[in-house]
Nucleic acid binder design. Structure first.
Lengths: 232, 232
DNA sequence: ACCTGAACACCGTTCAAGT
DNA sequence: ACCTGAACACCGTTCAAGT
């Protein structure tokens, strides 16, 4: 056979939706979510942009699928936890599950923002919520309290809270200086920053330990839920 | 003077950034945030798209400014509340402030998503946080506890929580049916839906009262913070 | 000082055509 | 069945030019 006229796609296994989504996640992890365009994703997959539409309906479907990949990873991780059975210690079981979910999320920093723009329930998200609900129920929660609990946790159940301000963004010094200049008009903010930063002198504005704050809020909610569950 | 050759912009007061931002908010309220493009906003303002750049740096600055308009509205609303002084009843004062903020947010449904994509602190957001912090301090919170409290509230301080799934989206029946078909694999989700929906028979999936759930989560946090504050 | 039109470099997506 | 190239209707933004 003529060696120079070989087709550009020699007997390559045809693309699957699964491959496209896995590649999209990898691309977002590596280059950020803004790199995930149909054209950019196609290049990464090794195909023309328009070929993607043969495997996914449109870009929304790509984002839905990426969320599904992440939540599936969370589900697999959570299933691997061997802790106390939730029937005996629902609270520590729940805590361990959610912190495991958080560890997955931290590996995919783009995921929270994308999840929050989804309105479609994906199968894996449904499965995850089923599991969380099951843990509450194993702990003796009424349907009603379990329902409230799901709402109260919100995205925290998936291991993240939306930080209103990027903790370690650039411009810390500038922001710090601007705040200090307004100190007389912002006594509480400045007071808090000085006081809390004092405990950790080698930080400027980076005095927020995201993980610790996440656990603080989580425990506040879990403790409150425990109390409501006990008194019902 | 020749009536036919009048300039297209007769002695019109020159555009200001304030007008551009106010118009952007009105446009988002009316047509949704996706209608706020530079071209669309310019049309609404009555000018060519490129003229906007004389008053705002770029689109990011427009979004920053829109957030500032909303938070300023919240600040004004919160300042109008006459409740108990926070020194005596910090919890009900805080509760009233946050629920007032929520009422503003509900009038601008696009705002939460935009706020969550901002990483810049705007002056009005700083001022609002200063006020919330002040309420905690008036209630006797240590700097440390007040700091944790701000993180625990997160975006709830501004009156919203990100709902993971649109409550009253279309396709309720379809989703409901799909869930019922998977009932054996989703005992907890289906059980909860049947139980909770039972209390409010004329709803299908619309059994989540967003406002009530917001208050439930808020009170859970405030009660927990009160307990921590008392025991310190 | 303020506004404009044309243009550029991107998007997501459609469609007719290739193998 | 799968992939492609050209094209369309949008974006945000730059730039030189108008008044």
């Amino acid at each position: 056979m003529a060696t120079n006229t070989e087709p550009q796609h020699p007997h390559r296994a045809p693309l699957t939706a699964e491959q496209v989504l896995q590649t999209a996640v990898r691309l977002a992890d590596r280059d950020g979510i803004e790199a995930v365009t149909m054209r950019g994703l196609a290049r990464e997959v090794g195909v023309e942009a328009m070929s993607l539409y043969h495997h996914v309906a449109n870009k929304e479907a790509v984002l839905d699928g990426m969320v599904d990949v992440i939540v599936s990873e969370i589900l697999a991780t959570v299933d691997d936890i061997d802790g106390p059975p939730p029937e005996e210690e629902w609270k520590s079981a729940m805590r361990a599950q959610i912190l495991a979910a958080r560890r997955v999320m931290l590996r995919h920093p783009w995921a929270p923002a994308i999840i929050e723009t989804r309105s479609n329930m994906t199968p894996s998200i449904i499965a995850y919520f089923e599991k969380v609900l099951g843990t509450f129920r194993a702990g003796g929660f009424s349907w009603d309290l379990a329902h409230h609990a799901m709402h109260a946790l919100g995205s925290r159940a998936l291991g993240f809270t939306q930080e209103l301000f990027e903790p370690d963004d650039g411009g810390d010094d500038a922001t710090m200086e601007a705040l200090t200049q307004m100190a007389d008009r912002l006594p509480n903010l400045v007071g808090m920053m000085q006081e809390v930063a004092h405990d950790d002198p080698d930080s400027t504005l980076g005095w927020c330990d995201d993980d610790a704050e996440f656990e603080f809020g989580l425990d506040l909610l879990l403790d409150g839920l425990e109390r409501l569950n006990a008194s019902s």
